[in-house]
């Protein structure tokens, strides 16, 4: 695990000429077309655009969930597109984490256990894991709900657990795909504010896909994406 306080020389995310097309020939649908951009360490970038504009595809390629047709993605200087399955697993375990629109919590586990999942994957000693989980639940304001299962929590609380889980492994890059998509506006704003706060406190770089204009204000930079191309 790298030290979040350690200064980095280059960009945290470097994307060059990224292209991804679904289908072939007549049915081919270009999702991303020659996309290039950088994200600086500790920066929070909002990727905005309409449905089908390529936001999710971009996040998937950044996190190694999908492979591009061409182009490169560098995370903290390491090329992602050439990594094999084990390398990608290691990347997701150690450097990149996700916050899903549908939270993605494990229903049989308590909030604390869900937050501890990335630490288990890294085989963190039990004592350290418990300490970190407690810290994160405190950070997202769910210390009193540590023993509750996702079914016993509201949507906003579940997403806060998901954010805590995403931060548990101290990732360098946090990817959030429509993290407020399942929440009402007020809860969504609260969650986004929390995300902003914890990203700052943990020193994490974040790329957040959203189509909610209100949430863009919380980002350091907005990356507009339309028809697979990145604008201003």
């Amino acid at each position: 695990m790298s030290d979040p306080a350690e200064p980095l020389a280059g960009p945290m995310v470097q994307v060059r000429g990224l292209t991804r097309t679904y289908g072939t020939d007549a049915t081919a649908v270009p999702a991303l077309r020659d996309v290039s951009f950088d994200v600086a360490p500790g920066e929070m970038v909002a990727v905005v655009g309409r449905s089908g504009s390529g936001k999710t595809t971009l996040l998937n390629l950044l996190g190694g969930l999908d492979r591009p047709d061409s182009g490169s993605v560098r995370i903290d200087g390491s090329e992602v597109t050439t990594l094999d399955e084990d390398g990608l697993s290691a990347l997701r375990r150690d450097s990149v984490s996700y916050v899903f629109q549908t939270f993605g919590l494990i229903p049989a586990l308590t909030a604390a256990e869900n937050v501890g999942v990335p630490l288990r994957l890294r085989r963190t000693p039990v004592a350290d894991r418990e300490k970190r989980v407690e810290l994160l639940l405190d950070l997202v304001g769910l210390r009193d709900h540590a023993g509750q299962r996702p079914g016993e929590l509201s949507g906003g609380q579940q997403q806060r657990v998901a954010i805590a889980r995403a931060l548990a492994g101290s990732p360098r890059l946090l990817l959030a795909d429509e993290p407020t998509g399942q929440l009402d506006t007020e809860t969504g704003l609260a969650v986004m504010s929390l995300l902003r706060a914890v990203v700052e406190s943990e020193g994490v770089t974040a790329v957040v896909a959203t189509h909610d204009a209100v949430l863009m204000a919380l980002a350091d930079r907005v990356l507009a994406i339309s028809d697979g191309r990145v604008g201003g």
Binding site: S89, R92, R93, Y98, F100, V117
Partner: peptide, 10 residues
């Protein structure tokens, strides 16, 4: 898939 996205090896 979610567990894999969190880093669970194949």
């Amino acid at each position: 898939g979610r567990l894999r996205a969190l880093g669970l090896p194949q």
